[in-house]
Computed example of a mutant assay.
Amino acid sequence: MYNNDITRSTILVADDHQDILDFLAEDLGEHYDVVKANNGQEVLNLIADHHVDLIVSDIMMPYIDGYELCTRLKENISYSHIPFIMLTAKNNLQSKIEGLKYGADAYVEKPFSPSYLQAQIDSLLRNRRHMRQHYSQSPIVPLNSIALNKSDRTFLEKLNRLILDNISEHSLCVDMLADNMNMSRPTLYRKIKALSDLSPNELINITRLKKAAELLLEGELKIYEISTMVGFNSSSHFTRNFQKQFGVSPKEYAE
């Protein structure tokens, strides 16, 4: 089952053999928007200007090979969330281990079945969508559950702590988060959107509601006290938000 989102995902494919690159682009182009690159350096140049949902890259390329490319991207907080599939003609176990050690999310041997590669792509993208939905819809699932690597987990844990430390502030906003995360506002927006499929303000709101759910289960505070503690102007506004997000009222959840 291929990606059937209303907005097509963008796949960046990299290979220094033009015929393979064209074949990949043509085949994947039926289901995704495709951006092409001939080497790792081109990927780094392109990714700064294109929103990319997933990368498919050969290992053996000039200038910057697939291993180094994967390492650079996974170590860069702006791009570490992007799933990375390695393509290689090497089919021994050690090569697979090397690929995964460099941070690749999947490893596909050449020659490969186009339908197998598409299934791998769709599986990675679909799993990420399910993780985001599960996080948004469940009162108890933590923010770091949507991270698939160490860099993103560290980023999300820092972001979550920052929101929780300022949760009672009505003025908590994207600019304040960006300043404290040492990121520009656009970079923070893109990162949060890519990881959670939420805007920063939506993420702040859900974090408030999840903290409220935790306090409701403890049963020591009244609903209006909790709504104030997590930064809502009124308990009625809090109740509407909680019901809309989790499908149950705060009172029902507490009971």
Rank of each mutant, 00 (worst) to 15 (best):
L124G: 04
F155W: 02
L221H: 04
D179H: 14
F112R: 09
I97Y: 01
S115Q: 15
S196Y: 10
P186Y: 14
L159K: 06
S184D: 13
A194T: 03
R185T: 13
N144Q: 07
E157L: 13
L125H: 08
L156I: 08
D152A: 01
I167M: 10
H170I: 13
F112E: 00
K211L: 03
N160E: 14
K110R: 14
S145H: 09
N144M: 04
A104F: 05
I223H: 05
I223E: 12
D179Y: 12
K210N: 11
P111M: 03
L124N: 02
L215S: 05
R153F: 00
Y135E: 13
A212G: 07
E98R: 03
Q120G: 04
K158H: 02
I146N: 03
Y224A: 07
V108W: 01
T187N: 09
I192P: 13
E157Y: 03
E218A: 12
S95G: 14
Y189C: 08
P200D: 11
I163R: 01
L216I: 11
G103S: 04
L195C: 06
S227H: 07
T207L: 05
K101Y: 06
R128V: 00
A147M: 02
I146D: 00
A104E: 05
N166M: 08
S235F: 10
V230E: 08
P186L: 06
H130Q: 12
L164P: 09
N144C: 02
G103P: 03
I226F: 07
L156H: 01
L215K: 13
T228N: 15
L148T: 13
G219R: 07
Y224K: 14
L117Y: 01
I167T: 03
D165V: 02
K211D: 03
P186W: 07
I140D: 13
Y102L: 12
R132M: 02
N205Q: 11
G103V: 01
L162E: 11
L188Y: 11
R161A: 00
S115W: 04
R129N: 14
E220T: 09
M183N: 07
